[in-house]
Simulated assay, not measured.
Amino acid sequence: MHGPASPGWLLVTLCAATGAYCLLRMRSSVEEQRRAAGGEALMGFGMAAMAVPATVAAPPRWAWLAYAAVFGAAAVRALWVARTGPHHLHHLVGACAMVYMAGVMATAPGRHTHGGSGVPLLTGVLLLYFTGYVLRSGLRLLPTGSVVGGPGTVGWADRPELSQACRLSMGIAMLAMLVTL
């Protein structure tokens, strides 16, 4: 993505660390956790690759098209999984947002905006969605006052607060990437 190098590297680090933790979560004994963690790991590493500052490595057009193809396939998979429940729709929105950003970067590399004035409609809709998602995810991390089980009762790969923190950090990263379009 385009923008200042220092925040870009922070974004790369955040997304790569989140992707790495999601890979570790794939060792969970709960199948639903493993499945979700795989998709989130792909999203984290993909976001890290796309966030590398353009001043360091400006990817060729074909790389953006490859990102669009990979996340297009992830969107199709998310659409297939979403038929089992609406809670999977976020993965679909995230994958579609990645396809959109890759498409924008493939058609306008080196530019910070789409041209014209204002924010394009789809970018604005995605910014609103991910802002709501980040706020909701942050609220879900707040303590509720009740403790379910004590330390050691849940495996580290199955800790819901860590999974939620990963989702929150990827939502924030998605917002940062959308703002730079």
Rank of each mutant, 00 (worst) to 15 (best):
71 F>D: 05
64 W>F: 13
49 A>Q: 06
125 V>I: 14
71 F>R: 11
123 T>S: 13
103 G>N: 01
47 M>Y: 03
114 H>Y: 13
98 M>W: 13
77 R>E: 08
90 H>M: 09
81 V>C: 03
89 L>F: 13
28 S>G: 05
95 A>S: 15
27 R>Y: 09
122 L>D: 00
82 A>Q: 01
91 H>Y: 05
63 A>T: 14
106 A>Y: 12
35 R>M: 09
85 G>M: 08
94 G>L: 09
35 R>T: 08
90 H>A: 10
66 A>M: 14
78 A>P: 07
114 H>L: 12
87 H>D: 11
91 H>N: 04
30 V>D: 05
116 G>E: 08
104 V>K: 04
38 G>Q: 13
60 P>N: 04
79 L>P: 00
99 V>R: 07
114 H>R: 06
86 P>E: 10
70 V>Y: 05
36 A>W: 05
65 L>C: 10
61 R>V: 12
62 W>M: 08
99 V>S: 11
121 L>W: 15
72 G>Q: 02
37 A>D: 02
94 G>M: 14
104 V>R: 15
86 P>W: 15
103 G>M: 00
44 G>K: 12
62 W>V: 08
58 A>W: 10
27 R>H: 08
116 G>D: 11
66 A>W: 14
98 M>I: 08
56 V>N: 14
120 P>C: 10
37 A>E: 02
57 A>E: 11
108 A>P: 01
124 G>S: 05
94 G>I: 00
97 A>P: 06
122 L>A: 09
86 P>V: 10
107 T>G: 04
115 G>L: 12
118 G>E: 09
29 S>D: 12
96 C>D: 02
98 M>C: 07
104 V>H: 10
111 R>D: 04
44 G>E: 10
39 G>P: 07
102 A>M: 04
45 F>R: 07
44 G>T: 09
113 T>M: 07
30 V>E: 05
64 W>A: 01
120 P>E: 06
122 L>W: 06
41 A>Y: 05
49 A>W: 14
47 M>N: 04
114 H>E: 00
57 A>W: 15
97 A>H: 07
44 G>W: 14
57 A>D: 12
60 P>G: 09
28 S>R: 06
50 M>N: 06
104 V>E: 06
43 M>G: 03
121 L>C: 01
67 Y>Q: 03
80 W>S: 00
63 A>N: 02
57 A>I: 15
52 V>A: 03
88 H>L: 01
39 G>D: 02
97 A>V: 06
110 G>I: 13
69 A>L: 15
52 V>M: 03
76 V>D: 01
64 W>M: 06
104 V>P: 02
33 Q>S: 09
71 F>W: 14
41 A>V: 02
85 G>Q: 10
29 S>Y: 12
31 E>Q: 12
33 Q>W: 14
102 A>D: 03
88 H>Q: 11
74 A>I: 04
42 L>P: 02
62 W>Y: 05
118 G>I: 08
28 S>W: 08
104 V>F: 15
103 G>V: 03
111 R>K: 12
56 V>L: 15
113 T>Y: 11
47 M>Q: 08
75 A>L: 07
32 E>Q: 12
69 A>H: 09
87 H>Q: 12
125 V>N: 02
71 F>N: 10
64 W>V: 00
72 G>W: 09
61 R>G: 00
124 G>K: 02
57 A>N: 09
121 L>P: 06
39 G>C: 05
65 L>T: 01
119 V>F: 04
80 W>E: 00
